[in-house]
Nucleic acid binder design. Structure first.
Length: 407
DNA sequence: TCTGGGGTCCTAGGACCC
DNA sequence: TCTGGGGTCCTAGGACCC
């Protein structure tokens, strides 16, 4: 497995760049894409804004303090999904082995494409040129013998970069890089490793593997491999990928909420969002999770309940969520609520036999059809009538585009 | 108006069955 | 008069990714 050639392509400031292309007045200016809800953060900042220190995850007021002239744009998920789907389909012209890693990132295994296209750099240049020409967007590409190193490489030159790590250069290139550059080492793991005196990737590779294993279990071996730049995980195309394992929605409320009736209204809305998505995918779930984040931001509680049978009707999810809520004694006003459905079963949609349930299922199908066509919450429960209809307000770079499955 | 939202994977402990 | 142990399911929480 030493002779693979993996390419990692990462769109530069994707959401912000798409907006700048859509609206020429925004080009060359510091802009940031944000969410539509009241308490939102910076989702993506343009490179012009990044120069001022504006970063993903930053509060709006902080971004404005760093860069008073920043232009804020409410994100349009549909726009990004469409663009990324078209970009991913371009990649399939060079290899069938394309793994979508997020809405703006993918791995390509081009090992067997070289006979047709020549050097991997050539594939990278072709892709970069086509993406630039079709969408006006730039990306950074990394080429390496595995996914770990390809991702590391694409991060090394931004924007519009191309970085190659050849097998014989691996140790020299990674030796002095900080461990947090590795995909899989976050801030907590970084701190743990720092305490062991490990700061660079080279340090990690030289550290005794048995101590890592004793301290981190299975992860220890993985850490050791990463330290040596080793990774034999395959590029898995969408068609071979495991089925989705959970469906959830959460929302930070406009204001902290204490009244039960207010909480229930949000839970009904979340249940409808989760249920509708589950029905669209043709799945039901046996376990319902409720997540509550309190007003202080740091404390939270999560509880789950497993049912006798899998469900995907919004009102069934809602009932389960209320059941869970009733077991919790809320400690503070609520800042965020989340509902997630897990233990998913994939089953062919079938109308229930009994008349009453059958009528309900038919009605839900009809409601789903209207909402799919005219936007979320066009037809909904009476108590949600004043809910905003603005389509999916969810924006997140981790959003998996629905339409990126091959063929 | 300080701090979003969608996921996956792992661990650890308890219940229960054989 | 002794209290083993494997497997599976469930719950809670944390780390990590984008």
């Amino acid at each position: 497995m030493n002779d693979r050639i993996i390419l990692h392509l990462d769109m530069n400031a994707f959401f912000a760049s798409v907006e700048q292309q859509a609206n020429p007045a925004l080009r060359g200016k510091p802009i940031a894409v944000i969410g539509s809800s009241g308490r939102t953060v910076i989702t993506t900042a343009s490179y012009e804004a990044r120069k001022f220190g504006v970063k993903t995850g930053m509060a709006i007021w902080e971004a404005k303090r760093q860069c008073p002239q920043i232009i804020l744009v409410v994100g349009d998920n549909h726009k990004y999904t469409c663009t990324s789907t078209r970009i991913f389909s371009m990649m399939l012209d060079y290899t069938p082995l394309v793994e979508v890693f997020s809405i703006d990132e993918a791995f390509l295994d081009v090992t067997h494409s070289l006979k047709i296209f020549g050097a991997p750099e050539r594939i990278a240049y072709l892709l970069k040129a086509r993406i630039k020409q079709s969408f006006g967007l730039t990306c950074s590409v990394g080429i390496a013998p595995n996914k770990l190193l390809a991702k590391l490489a694409s991060d090394m030159k931004k924007p519009d970069g191309l970085t190659i790590i050849r097998p014989d250069e691996v140790s020299q290139i990674i030796d002095q890089l900080p461990i947090k550059d590795l995909c899989g080492i976050g801030s907590r793991m970084e701190r743990h490793l720092n305490l062991l005196g490990i700061r660079t990737i080279g340090d990690l590779g030289r550290f005794p593997v048995d101590i890592l294993k004793r301290k981190f279990g299975v992860t220890g071996q993985h850490l050791h491999d990463m330290g040596l730049g080793m990774d034999d995980s395959p590029v898995v195309p969408a068609s071979d990928q495991d089925k989705i394992k959970s469906i959830g929605h959460s929302m930070t409320l406009r204001r902290d909420v204490s009244l039960r009736q207010d909480i229930l209204k949000y839970l009904l809305q979340l249940s409808e969002m989760v249920g509708r998505r589950a029905r669209r995918y043709g799945v039901s779930g046996k376990t319902v999770h409720l997540y509550v984040r309190y007003a202080d931001f740091y404390s939270s509680i999560g509880k789950q309940q497993t049912l006798a049978n899998p469900i995907n009707q919004s009102d069934d999810i809602y009932k389960a969520a209320i059941d869970i809520l009733d077991t919790i004694e809320l400690q503070q006003p609520v800042r965020l609520l989340g509902i997630r459905l897990t233990s998913l079963k994939y089953q062919v949609a079938q109308l229930p036999l009994f008349p009453q349930e059958r009528r309900k299922a038919l009605m839900v199908n009809a409601m789903d059809a209207v909402n799919n066509r005219y936007g979320d919450f066009t037809v909904t429960f009476a108590s949600l009538m004043d809910t905003e209809k603005k389509g999916s307000h969810v924006i997140s770079p981790a959003w998996r585009p629905d339409g990126c499955q091959r063929r």
